[in-house]
């Protein structure tokens, strides 16, 4: 990470865009206005408009992205605060996480393989149900493309928000544990935001599921890549 003029300009620009995007979201509260989406679109537009290569932008972007690693470590704190909920429902939670993570890794790998995508793209799709910071680091570790992995994580999250409620209803998944674990294990933070609408117990379940799925997904992704490729 260099301390160049571009680093200062683009890190400040990223933070400022995020602050504005957050403000817009809090003002209108519409799902498609999710700040990650609007901030990304705005920044991409600026880069294209001013003909700035992504590499130059990342001189500043790297400074912002440097917080990802510590943030993943920090996820231990909310999980620890939910330890009683986890202890009380250990077996059903564990069963749901294991089933979900394996189903996600296997289906993602097989579908991309059947359609003949390159190994790099298969490994990029693999961590899509993990929370973004973990998914990106997993993609890096196993040989995928982290920025593209982040895009698929967003697609997974929006699938959870927009289609998840219909699927849950269709399958008669109607308990806080079933809904929360389903949303958190498949659609991470965005799914957890949706779980909040069902109630606080759904939300806690979803938050626990998001973290546990991220950890298990990080452990199993290299294994899945090795077994299925």
């Amino acid at each position: 990470m260099a301390f160049t003029p571009a680093a200062i300009v683009f890190s400040v620009l990223t933070v400022a865009t995020y602050v504005i995007a957050n403000f817009v979201y809090l003002r209108f509260r519409k799902t498609p206005l999710n700040p990650v989406i609007t901030a990304t679109v705005a920044l991409v537009a600026i880069l294209i408009l001013f003909d700035v290569p992504y590499e130059t932008y990342m001189e500043g972007g790297d400074w912002v992205a440097a917080f990802l690693g510590p943030a993943v470590v920090a996820l231990a704190v909310p999980l620890y605060k939910h330890r009683e909920l986890l202890q009380k429902n250990l077996v059903p939670i564990a069963a749901g996480i294991v089933a979900g993570v394996i189903a996600g890794l296997v289906s993602g790998t097989l579908f991309t393989r059947w359609l003949g995508f390159t190994e790099e793209l298969i490994l990029t799709v693999l961590p899509k149900s993990l929370t973004t910071p973990v998914a990106m680091q997993v993609a890096t570790t196993i040989g995928g493309i982290p920025s593209l992995a982040a895009v698929f994580v967003m697609v997974a999250g929006f699938t959870g928000i927009l289609l998840g409620p219909y699927l849950l209803q269709l399958l008669n998944i109607d308990s806080p544990i079933g809904r929360g674990i389903g949303l958190g294990a498949s659609a991470h933070g965005l799914g957890t935001a949706k779980a909040f609408e069902y109630g606080p117990e759904d939300a806690s379940m979803s938050s626990v599921a998001m973290t546990l799925a991220a950890v298990l997904g990080a452990l199993l992704s290299p294994l899945a890549a090795w077994l299925l490729l």
């Binding site: 289906s107 579908f111 149900s129 308990s175 389903g182 599921a209």
Partner: peptide, 18 residues
């Protein structure tokens, strides 16, 4: 692919835990 695989993940996780 990502959309369908996400729904499979949700179905498996939600159904197993419930």
């Amino acid at each position: 692919i990502v959309i369908i695989s996400t729904l499979i993940t949700m179905a498996a996780a939600g159904f197993a835990s419930q």
